[in-house]
């Protein structure tokens, strides 16, 4: 958008209150820019919710997450469990009659929640992502046995899935030894670039 043309899509929700919550006037734009989507396109038909495999476990359904963004409800959108329960299967994006990629919006919300240190109601899921990425950061590859062990330490759920792990081990399907990349510096450079301060890496 060049400076001299008025931005017709700009909206100012600063005087809006929804259910007692003041709208965050910048939230809508931020999500749009970070996700590369235009959330205004969503006309709330509900097709995303209808086809979502994990909607049953979400507190706000997919179309409602989109609605929260449309109304600038940052706090709810970033603290709901839905953004962590979205499994990224792209069913919604594939069938959306307005070609909105809700998965990209979910990603953007997750990214914002992480960067703003909003505690996820889905602690295990959040822990999983953290453990997963820190393992990649260290060795460049995901080591399944290591990941499972680290996750158990982080979540404190030490006994969960132990029989399954043993069975896998017995079947020769858990490799006890990690197999890291050789050029670890290259991987670390990627992580370094990703964490350039003061940015949350929006799309154009």
């Amino acid at each position: 958008m060049s400076d001299d043309t008025p931005d017709k899509t700009a909206n100012d929700l600063s005087n809006l209150t929804v259910g007692g919550h003041r709208s965050d006037p910048e939230f809508f734009e931020r999500v749009n820019s970070l996700s590369g989507q235009n959330v205004s396109l969503c006309y709330q038909c509900g097709e995303c919710t209808a086809g979502c495999p994990t909607a049953f476990a979400m507190d706000f359904k997919p179309n409602q997450v989109s609605r929260l963004v449309q109304l600038g409800m940052a706090e709810e959108a970033l603290s709901c469990n839905s953004i962590w329960i979205c499994v990224g299967c792209e069913t919604c994006a594939t069938r959306c009659p307005k070609n909105v990629d809700l998965c990209a919006i979910m990603d953007a919300l997750r990214q914002m929640a992480s960067k703003r240190h909003v505690k996820s109601p889905e602690t295990d899921v959040q822990s999983f992502h953290e453990v997963f990425l820190s393992s990649i950061r260290k060795s460049g590859r995901m080591h399944e046995a290591g990941l499972i062990a680290a996750l158990k330490l982080k979540t404190g759920k030490l006994t969960k899935d132990i029989p399954l792990g043993l069975a896998l081990l017995k079947k020769g399907r858990l490799n006890p030894l990690p197999d890291p990349v050789k050029d670890k510096a290259a991987v670390q450079a990627i992580f370094g670039e990703a964490q350039t301060p003061g940015e949350d890496n929006g799309r154009q």
């Binding site: 097709e47 209808a50 909607a55 359904k61």
Partner: peptide, 10 residues
């Protein structure tokens, strides 16, 4: 399989 957006349910 549809949605009822008024209820927010599948």
């Amino acid at each position: 399989k549809g949605a009822d957006t008024l209820l927010g349910k599948q």
